[in-house]
Amino acid sequence: MESLDKYANHFDASYPAYADARYLGILALVSKYDSDSASTLLASESFKQALDIILPVIAIKNYKSQIPFPEDVLAVVETVLEVRGATIDASDRFKNLTLLFNRLEATQGFQLPTISAVFHFCHPESFPIVDVNVQAACKALIDRNPELAEYEYPKLPAPRSSVKNKIKKYKLFIAVIDKILDLHREKNIINNYRCLDKALMVLGALQLKKTTDAVIS
Rank of each mutant, 00 (worst) to 15 (best):
E152D: 14
A38W: 13
G85P: 00
L24S: 12
Y193F: 15
L27C: 08
N62Y: 09
V163H: 06
D12M: 01
N62R: 08
A140T: 06
H123L: 05
A158Q: 15
S65Y: 05
R144Q: 14
S39Y: 06
S14G: 07
L141K: 08
M201E: 01
D92R: 07
A90Y: 04
D92N: 15
S35L: 11
P128H: 01
E150Y: 05
A21P: 02
R194M: 02
L104T: 01
D143R: 10
P157C: 07
S35R: 07
A59W: 03
V30S: 02
M201F: 14
A140N: 05
V118T: 05
R93L: 04
P16K: 06
N96D: 04
L27H: 07
D197P: 02
L100R: 03
C195F: 08
P113N: 01
I190V: 10
L99H: 12
Q66Y: 12
L203R: 03
I53K: 11
C122K: 00
L74D: 12
I53T: 13
N96E: 09
R144W: 03
D89Q: 08
F127S: 00
I177N: 03
M201Q: 11
Y23P: 02
Q49R: 12
F110A: 00
I189H: 13
G109P: 02
S116G: 06
C195S: 15
H120P: 03
L51T: 06
V132K: 13
P68V: 04
P154G: 02
E105R: 11
L141S: 05
R93Q: 08
V132G: 01
D89M: 03
T114R: 13
S3N: 14
L200C: 02
S65C: 09
F94K: 00
P146V: 13
T114H: 01
E125G: 04
E150G: 04
L99M: 09
Q111A: 13
E71Q: 11
N192R: 10
A43H: 10
N191C: 13
M1Y: 12
A75C: 08
V118N: 00
L4S: 07
D178T: 14
F121S: 01
N9S: 14
V30P: 01
K168L: 10
H184M: 00
V80D: 03
F101G: 04
F121K: 02
K95N: 08
T107S: 15
A28K: 14
D72T: 01
L172A: 14
V57D: 13
T114C: 00
Q49K: 14
V176R: 03
L42C: 06
S31F: 05
L112D: 05
A50T: 10
R144H: 07
E186V: 02
H184R: 00
F47D: 02
S14D: 10
Y23L: 08
D20W: 07
A86G: 02
D12L: 07
L4I: 06
C195K: 15
K198P: 04
P159K: 13
L24H: 13
A59D: 15
G204C: 09
S14E: 15
L148N: 08
A19S: 14
V215Y: 14
Y153H: 12
Y153R: 06
K6G: 00
E78R: 13
C122F: 00
